[in-house]
Design a protein around this nucleic acid. Sequence first.
RNA 1: GCCGCCGUAGCUCAGGGGUAGAGCACACCCUUGGUAAGGGUGGGGUCGAGUGUUCAAUUCACUCCGGCGGCACCA
Length: 644
Amino acid sequence: MSEAVNQNNVAITLPDGTVRHFVTGVTAGEVAADIGPGLAKAALAARIDDKLVDLSTRIEFNAAVSIVTVKDDEALELLRHDAAHVLAEAAKELWPDIQVTIGPVIENGFYYDFGRADPFTPNDLVNMEQRMREIVSRDEEITREVWNREYAIEFFTSIGEQYKAEIVRDLPESEVITIYKQGEFVDLCRGPHLPSTGKLGSNFKLMKIAGAYWRGESRNEMLQRVYGTAWATEKELKQYLHRLDEAERRDHRRLGREMDLFHIQEEATGSVFWHVKGWTLYRVIESYMRRRLEGASYVEVRTPQLFDRVLWEKSGHWEKFCEHMFTSESEERVLALKPMNCPGHVQIFRQGLKSYRDLPLRMAEFGCCHRNEPSGALHGLMRVRAFVQDDAHIFCTEDQVNQETAEFCELLMSIYRDFGFTDVIVKFCDRPEMRAGDDVVWDRAERSLKDALDQTGLDYVANPGEGAFYGPKLDFVLRDAIGRDWQCGTWQVDFVLPERLDASYVGADGVKRRPVMLHRAILGSFERFIGILIEHYAGRFPVWLAPIQAVVATITNESDSYALRVNEALQEAGLRSEIDLRNETINYKVREHTYAKIPMILVVGAREAEQGTVSLRWLGGKKQEVLALDQAVANLSDAAAVPA
RNA sequence: GCCGCCGUAGCUCAGGGGUAGAGCACACCCUUGGUAAGGGUGGGGUCGAGUGUUCAAUUCACUCCGGCGGCACCA
């Protein structure tokens, strides 16, 4: 390239800082080719002054340019976006009268929604994927055009693409309407795209078919969605598929059955039958939580299951959620099973005069709530119709919100740590569109919560419009062992409910005032939290949580009486142990209790009986250690200690 | 609730217009074996429920219930 600089040249700064000069209007692809043939081949897109663009983009001004290859993070997004387009092209080829709609990139892949009278069959999925691979091997050039709005609408209408025409019609006037073509396929798209379909490669797979509402609105017609996954390398694709297998292996519904923790049956859909072992786990968690709450100066109460609907009308829940409440009738009154504890707690607060000296009043309840969730939403323990939260409401003054928020965050983090979760995301959720209370109150509530959060020093992300209908909130999201997020904890500021249910206290000046109500939970529902724990630990619970902590297994029946003594010693030390005296080989017993994920197996035979020892084997370990009985009991007790 | 798929033994699954099979589990017998399956015998099913077609339905059709995957919802 010439060093001369004139107005027909552009100076292009490369990522390493070198500057090259090109004729004005050079394409990003040509720049890549000038740098080297290897890069030209690998080039997928370009970044011009930080804007991601097609390789065909002409460069008219001096700019910083970098060439995007498969090694760059954004390449994956391009790849997935192109996969969606290739899928749409394949579907159009297979069924010419199918309508294309949208096909965005999502976590781990992409989807495409089609308008079609008949739903897809699993075989269609196979055919579409096959056709996609053909389109990739055709290596069709992908080209971009800018169209006039009216023309675009006319065009899409003329080829029967009503959805596309609607999308164009609804685009803001300022939007440039860009069209991408590959082979015979013409699509409205913002871009950018890869230079040709061949660049997609072969590391993609169509995963499943599903229904999805047009524009995500349940009143709209249902489209046919195809989900796919796409990766830069075969290795990453395989790893992803392996992760899916791993998630399936951990599925709490499967482990719940295999480990005999709980079941759910037709006659009580959405409600849990806790079996002995599952209920043991539940009780361990519950008593742990009771202790932590006591330590944080909470008091515990119990409020009724059934309330007259007038209470729910007063609280505002009836108006918004009556569809999701279970109701019953008695003596001409409509009663509703409580979907939450807060109105009940206000009733207790209202008994007798409360003084500012009583605040903050931290009122906890492990109360069973019922919500009539839509049938399609039910999912094992994760979404049920009857559940118990580690629920509490803090009645306090506005001035106390700061301190309460700080203390709550500390308690929550400490509890999560005890359960083995250290990666926690905090979300700040502000006013939703549908809400109670006027904007002045919301301004105050949001400001007060934000100030308090800032003072905790925790990192957080904004989650606009996602607050509760009565106030802003913080959501606490756990990341589990395989990288999935679960929203569990919540902290909600509420100026509305105390007003509606007329809660008040007497201030230092003798004047009646409204308390602020803070709704809060750490685990969320016990049911769901246990589901999360099962999946997080893949059923291999830490010893303190394991329903059965130890099994004493004999080698021959000769040692039965000694084994009974060992088991007794364990139980006396407060361990949850079982004994296996069956007439089976030790191999069989070890295998079975290992599959049952028992943390420790104590094998006893003639030798141990004679010497007063046990042969101890830990879950996941292959070695055994022979210890004196009292030493073993001491070790196991330590291992089983509930976090302090 | 909406779209699709599925429902056979306790579990995982095979089968298919003429009232059912495997492995594991379970019970009994033999075996008393030192750290991931010792051997034998046996019991167990209104094939999710209902209606229809048929000489005959677990099998085909329809309806309902439930499960699964999404969508929508989630105080």
